[in-house]
Design a protein around this nucleic acid. Sequence first.
DNA 1: CGATATTTTGACCCGGCTCAACCCAAGTGG
DNA 2: CCACTTGGGTTGAGCCGGGTCAAAATATCG
Lengths: 255, 255
Amino acid sequence: MVQLGPVPDLSGAIDKCAGCPIRHRAVCSYSSPAELQKLESAKFYRNYDAGQVIAAEGEVTRSLGSVVTGVVALNRTLEDGRRQMVGLMFASDFIGRPLRRTVPFEASAVTDVRMCLFHRSQFEQILGDSPSLERRLLELTLDELDAARDWMLLLGRKTARERLASFLMILTIRQANLDKMTAQSGQVLALPLTREAIAEYLGLTIETVSRQFTALRKDGVIDLPDRRSVRIADLARLQSAAGLDQGDEQFHALS
Amino acid sequence: MVQLGPVPDLSGAIDKCAGCPIRHRAVCSYSSPAELQKLESAKFYRNYDAGQVIAAEGEVTRSLGSVVTGVVALNRTLEDGRRQMVGLMFASDFIGRPLRRTVPFEASAVTDVRMCLFHRSQFEQILGDSPSLERRLLELTLDELDAARDWMLLLGRKTARERLASFLMILTIRQANLDKMTAQSGQVLALPLTREAIAEYLGLTIETVSRQFTALRKDGVIDLPDRRSVRIADLARLQSAAGLDQGDEQFHALS
DNA sequence: CGATATTTTGACCCGGCTCAACCCAAGTGG
DNA sequence: CCACTTGGGTTGAGCCGGGTCAAAATATCG
């Protein structure tokens, strides 16, 4: 089902940073042309199929880099198999920790994924004399920490309904921002995650996620045109179902 | 009950960095003597009483800095009052986000606390031309992100018993490291947190925390000499009660 | 069109929450 | 010195939201 190990697909290794779709938001977005030159010669691309494991839990990783397209999930697992997602990375997000040998979680491709990668030692070397790279990495890490803290509130205190509504709100706002629009009722979301992945994100079971989808639909908050899309029928009610009324900071900080 | 606002206690503003107890672990630990000079002239100390709010949720903060002594909790709150702790900071941990105007959580002193602070604008300026400061801040932020992810696993998937055992393990290892020892059975912990704060940390109610303390005691895993201390009667069983067997990465990464 | 995986729905159960009472130590004032 | 208060902690009884187990419904794919 799930294929292990990276596929050494080097197609597109000749791509230029200049035309890169994540050029203005990724870790390299503050880099000068000179720095970009160094990064450009060090980088390489790799593609992963949906479901593929990018890095196993505890594995010694030799490379790290940015998501160019697609969605990557980070998961932690208990011995008995209980799994909790601890990170969900979209285009321009940076995966892999400089200054650390291993990753304490599993990274897997949720959709087909294209990564822009560096060998760790090489990246750390460039990082060492590139303050702009380091500054951007610090910013990205702070953003992730904020997201993790919102997520902790969700996991620790919210009901199943609030969790699912929060998740849909996050996706809605994110997509609206990407489309340079404001979120609004009628908006249609393409869900990149399976029910199982959503359950892992929310700290619930698949069954509960499914029931809450049904409940939100019956309440007229959302429509479910098909299994992989959601139409936001009533954004205001979705937001209040998420346990956050307007004016809350969370949904402004999602870049 | 809880006193709002910072107490302008400037006692000890003349302290030198050289003799600082957190000199070798805080954000300044990589700084050269020249950089330290700049930091030294910009810093100031402030003390807070146990229970005092250091920064309110959403407040525009004008300063940020390191915990010198004591323990600080970061909490997020839902409209209806449900609270979840999202950060627990000890000596040498850094609080406050450079490059951000507001904090999205409440910071409050769990014990009496002493902070080494900087005005935000001044700190950001120094940060701008001090790669060693920025490097250390990145490391500290990455460490916090790791801790946040472990915490998410706890909140999303662990039982009440596992949560409390995990919390006690974390405190045990942290204290052992501070004492330059290895954690072991017989070790006695001074709990800095009330039952309420522990419940906020663990995403549980006070009652459940109390019941789990009793259960662990009855099972011979811990002793409770008094309400604010715990004796680790059987470290191995505590560890397995935490849902992590030996060899797990988590308890090595706690600095 | 089977065959397999994903999702939904149903029935039942249980761990942790709620509500309430009680305990205990540390003030506090008469 | 003692009655009373106050705040934190513990314990008990009962309930309920979300988990578990099972089966049906609905994709998806050779």
